[in-house]
Design a protein around this nucleic acid. Sequence first.
DNA 1: CTTTGCGCCACATAAAATTTTGTAAAAACG
DNA 2: CGTTTTTACAAAATTTTATGTGGCGCAAAG
Lengths: 160, 160
Amino acid sequence: MDNSVRIKFDKIDRRILEILQANAKITNAQLSKDIGLSPAPTLERVKKLEQSGIIKSYHAKLDPEKIGLGVSTFVLVSLIGHNKGNIDAFMKEINDIQEVIECHHITGTGDFILKIIAKDITAYQKLMLEKVSEIKEVDSMQSMVILSTFKDSKVLPIPA
Amino acid sequence: MDNSVRIKFDKIDRRILEILQANAKITNAQLSKDIGLSPAPTLERVKKLEQSGIIKSYHAKLDPEKIGLGVSTFVLVSLIGHNKGNIDAFMKEINDIQEVIECHHITGTGDFILKIIAKDITAYQKLMLEKVSEIKEVDSMQSMVILSTFKDSKVLPIPA
DNA sequence: CTTTGCGCCACATAAAATTTTGTAAAAACG
DNA sequence: CGTTTTTACAAAATTTTATGTGGCGCAAAG
């Protein structure tokens, strides 16, 4: 009775993962052609990859500008205290702010780095003033506005 | 003769976008139920959103750890010169490095911020020493290792 | 008030995904 | 070394899903 799913994948699975990362909407028929198997075992493999948690989810990628999101930034955040309580409280607050797309705990200069997206500079300023900097655990913040994005790959380099 | 596709979306479209960002694998039938339309017009709307470029693509999200990617970092990079030639050269080099998942041109401290993913610290060090820091336009670099990721939302907050 | 166009539903058809069945190869076991 | 078990695969059948068509109703324009 093995509760945890065995995680192991071969060259074909790796190929599947590469393809699905780049294009999740490919049909099983086309995928099977690309990897050189028939549809059934191809689907089996995909299902296994999903069940094992290697494939976590599928997402549509939108064009930020076309939905009226003109400003993206990274923000380095330092907290006042670095104990677990403070960090948990901070995380909880951050989780409720939709505009904060990512939040990572990091080494180095700050304590956290956030990725934030907003309609425009005005909306961004409002967001920062009224929500982010209002979090009491926050000590200092440093914003880096994204001028342009050269690369935003959704394909992770799977080690051999 | 309108070559460019009209970009305009209503409350229903917004709902569709939210759903597809969170779960691209939903069937058209289920999506149509969720938004309260029949399948045909639902699909029509999705197709329009794709054609207009609002929906750019669909991607499978993998679990980095489960495919053997244990180290993620952000790297602030300063270039030696800030002229277009240097920037273009840098971009070209960066584009060929698979481990560099993202590259953004930013304001503030550095010139660029990269998101890099690697197998482990050893592989990361090797990558940085042998590839990134070898790019001749690179002046200085500052790495921030991600200790943990609290939020990594694939759902953008669509402005009203 | 009429016309036009858009968005919708309902149904029909086509395509795809998924399940089932059977077979062959590889691995574990006696 | 042979037997059993497991695993992976293909082929075909079934079910589900996507897609195309026709017609209706509403809303805006004339």
